[in-house]
Computed example of a mutant assay.
Amino acid sequence: MSKRKLVVPNARKALEDYKLEVAKEFGVNDPKSLASNHTGYIVRKLVEMGERQLIDDNNN
């Protein structure tokens, strides 16, 4: 993991929890064995979630 200081300290734990959830979706028992394409999938899903949240916030 990066040693950069996080703006939201709980973000690292939340990201690790999300990676475990996605690993289970892929049927991967060991999250350390996630390949780069799995990581790319995780990033795409996070971006989609953020975009949806921004759209929802702007519509309300």
Score class of each variant (00 low, 15 high):
57 D>E: 14
55 I>H: 10
54 L>E: 03
18 Y>G: 00
51 E>S: 07
36 S>Q: 09
59 N>E: 12
2 S>H: 11
51 E>V: 08
47 V>A: 11
12 R>L: 13
39 T>P: 00
47 V>E: 08
51 E>K: 07
35 A>F: 10
20 L>K: 15
45 K>P: 01
13 K>C: 04
52 R>K: 13
34 L>F: 03
56 D>A: 04
24 K>C: 02
27 G>P: 01
40 G>Y: 06
53 Q>Y: 08
25 E>G: 10
59 N>S: 12
22 V>I: 14
26 F>H: 13
14 A>G: 10
27 G>Y: 09
9 P>V: 09
6 L>E: 03
21 E>F: 12
59 N>F: 02
37 N>K: 14
19 K>N: 07
31 P>N: 11
27 G>T: 10
29 N>Q: 04
19 K>V: 13
46 L>S: 06
29 N>I: 08
14 A>H: 14
60 N>Q: 08
47 V>W: 01
52 R>F: 05
18 Y>F: 14
46 L>M: 14
56 D>Q: 12
45 K>A: 04
22 V>P: 01
55 I>W: 00
19 K>S: 13
13 K>N: 02
53 Q>G: 02
18 Y>Q: 09
57 D>K: 02
15 L>T: 05
39 T>V: 15
13 K>A: 09
19 K>M: 14
42 I>Y: 03
27 G>W: 08
7 V>W: 08
38 H>T: 05
35 A>P: 00
49 M>Q: 10
44 R>I: 01
28 V>K: 08
54 L>I: 04
32 K>W: 09
58 N>I: 05
